[in-house]
């Protein structure tokens, strides 16, 4: 199945920079299952705005450093 969204993310790199935070740890801190954290990281699932902000808060970075959307696309 194709990706449902053009949104990309830097979660893998941010986890690496955060002392190799595990997906399980990230999932626990944002209140989702590991499978959902994995789906978000792989770009298979676009999280709600609330979960997106929770992810940004975990890594202590602005939202746009976690998620990106290609400019000029609608």
């Amino acid at each position: 199945m194709s990706k449902p969204t053009k949104i990309t993310n830097e979660i893998r790199r941010l986890r690496f920079d955060a002392d190799e935070m595990t997906q399980a740890e990230l999932a626990k801190r944002i209140g989702v299952t590991r499978q959902t954290a994995l789906a978000i990281e792989q770009g298979r699932y676009s999280p709600s705005l609330e979960v997106a902000f929770k992810i940004a808060n975990v890594f202590n970075v602005p939202l746009e450093q976690v998620f990106q959307y290609p400019e000029g696309d609608d």
Binding site: G31, T33, Q35, Y45, P47, S48, V51
Partner: peptide, 14 residues
Amino acid sequence: DAVDAEFGNEDERD
């Protein structure tokens, strides 16, 4: 801990 995290916790994707 893994059981507590995974079980019965229906998240937004679910």
